[in-house]
């Protein structure tokens, strides 16, 4: 196997919940709890889960919008792996060129007082790349690539003059203008209309090839993940519970949570008979979670083993299909 582009090792982020005014925080939300995965160059990994599962936090940790509580994020850079957590300020600037992010809300991810040109050229400006003239050419070229043509009609528009789909195209242009190798995409299409959603997804796939970027594609929608990602990781309360090739996970879900999630997804086929969703209770919060399996309270199949042991490790059950469940036999994958 080639060397991974990104290697995340036991990444953890705890948010303190302080009770009372002067007391020290005693409770912690385990937003991301010992998450490990790798992303190969050019590969797209989907991070799937319900709201509050920690998928967005994971994405923000990877682009260093937040500092991890513990764990490592290693990035491939010029033949060596650099540790993103302990990066100096000069290296951080360089790191910023390699790693970018696309945000969910196209209405809020552009400064309403800055033009498309300002927005797309901002990464170039803060990185001191090129003269004004060169930046202008580069931005025009990017707009062309994301399908905002002819670029001159869009260069000096304000966000309010654009539709949601056009804004998301601008956001993609901004993320790719520095020619990064890794992009975290946080639900980039969830706020768009169906007819526009697919064209944005298609554009992202096209540009992934053209720019040779890897995506960490964060989404709550398994159908979208299936379309966008080579592999998917399913998160539940801060833990990855299942990870593997997209088609393998969707056709042969092994973790009880993945199964429930998959059978709950509405299917655009009125003749399709959905299997019942087997899950108990409602979503719980990750404040000081139990040491046993994270899913134990909602799992209809939990046994004594589950109650008496710690959270199961994420194990390869065969063919690169990782599952964190005591009840799944090795070789099931």
């Amino acid at each position: 196997m080639t060397e991974p582009l990104v290697k995340v090792d036991r990444l953890t982020k705890l948010f303190p919940v302080s009770r009372g005014m002067f007391r020290r925080p005693v409770d912690f939300i385990h937003a991301v709890d010992g998450v490990s995965f790798e992303i190969a160059p050019g590969e797209s990994l989907g991070l799937v889960g319900e709201s509050g599962c920690g998928k967005t936090t994971t994405g923000r940790l990877l682009v260093k919008l937040m500092e991890a509580t513990s764990g490592q994020i290693l990035m491939h850079d010029d033949g060596s792996m650099i540790d993103v957590a302990h990066i100096g300020s000069d290296d951080l600037r360089r790191f910023r060129r390699r790693v970018q992010m696309i945000f969910q809300d196209p209405y809020e991810s552009m400064n309403p007082r800055r033009t498309v040109f300002d927005t797309v050229s901002e990464p170039l400006a803060v990185q001191n790349i090129g003269s004004l003239r060169e930046r202008e050419d580069r931005v025009a070229q990017m707009l062309q690539l994301v399908g905002l043509t002819p670029p001159n009609t869009f260069l000096f528009r304000y966000p309010h003059e654009l539709s949601g789909g056009q804004r998301q195209r601008v956001a993609i242009a901004r993320a790719l203008v520095l020619d990064p190798s890794f992009v975290v995409a946080d639900e980039p299409t969830s706020m768009l209309d169906v007819s526009i959603r697919i064209s944005i997804m298609e554009l992202m796939l096209e540009l992934a090839d053209a720019f040779d970027v890897s995506y960490l594609y964060i989404t709550h929608d398994l159908a979208v993940a299936r379309y966008m990602c080579d592999r998917i990781a399913v998160m539940y309360l801060g833990k990855i519970v299942e990870l593997g090739d997209t088609e393998e996970v969707l056709s042969n879900p092994l973790h009880p949570y993945t199964r429930a999630l998959l059978s709950a997804v509405p299917v655009p086929d009125p003749t399709y008979r959905k299997p019942p969703v087997e899950i108990k209770g409602g979503i719980t919060k990750a404040i000081n979670p139990p040491t046993e399996c994270r899913f134990i309270e909602r799992c209809p199949w939990a046994t004594d083993v589950c109650h008496s042991t710690e959270h199961p490790p994420l194990e390869d059950k065969g063919g690169g299909h990782f599952v964190a469940c005591h009840l799944v036999e090795k070789g099931a994958g």
Binding site: D193, S195, I198, L222, A223, R226, E247, V267, P268
Partner: peptide, 19 residues
């Protein structure tokens, strides 16, 4: 252009333009 978790993984046809 509606993706689904069931059925074969097919190419989705984007709808050009905007309403």
């Amino acid at each position: 252009s509606t993706p689904s978790v069931t059925g074969p993984r097919r190419k989705l046809a984007p709808l050009e333009g905007e309403p």
